[in-house]
Computed example of a mutant assay.
Amino acid sequence: MAKARIDDTSGIAAVHAATADFDSASRDARATAVRYLLQLLADAAPGNSVEVRVPPFGAVQCIEGPGHTRGTPPNVVETDAHTWVELATGALSWADGVAAARIRASGSRADLTTHLPVLDRIPTIRGK
Rank of each mutant, 00 (worst) to 15 (best):
K3S: 14
I6R: 14
D7P: 07
G11C: 05
A14P: 06
H16P: 00
A17N: 12
A18S: 08
T19W: 00
A20G: 02
A20V: 01
F22A: 02
F22I: 00
S24F: 06
S24C: 07
S26W: 11
S26Q: 08
R27L: 12
D28T: 12
A33G: 14
V34D: 07
V34M: 11
R35G: 07
Y36P: 13
L38I: 10
Q39Y: 12
A42L: 03
D43R: 10
A45H: 08
A45Q: 10
E51V: 15
V52Q: 07
V52H: 07
V52M: 06
R53I: 10
V54F: 04
P56E: 06
F57Q: 04
V60S: 07
E64V: 15
G65D: 10
P66S: 13
G67Q: 04
G67T: 07
G67Y: 06
T69L: 10
T69H: 09
T69S: 11
T69D: 09
R70D: 15
T72G: 13
P73G: 15
P73Y: 12
P73T: 11
N75K: 09
V77C: 06
T79E: 02
D80N: 10
A81D: 05
H82I: 00
T83Q: 02
E86F: 09
L87M: 03
A88K: 02
G90Y: 04
S93N: 07
S93T: 15
W94D: 05
G97S: 04
A101T: 13
A101F: 11
I103Q: 05
A105R: 04
G107E: 07
G107S: 08
R109F: 14
A110N: 01
L112D: 01
T113Q: 11
T114W: 14
V118D: 01
I125E: 02
R126I: 01
G127C: 02
K128M: 04
K128Y: 08
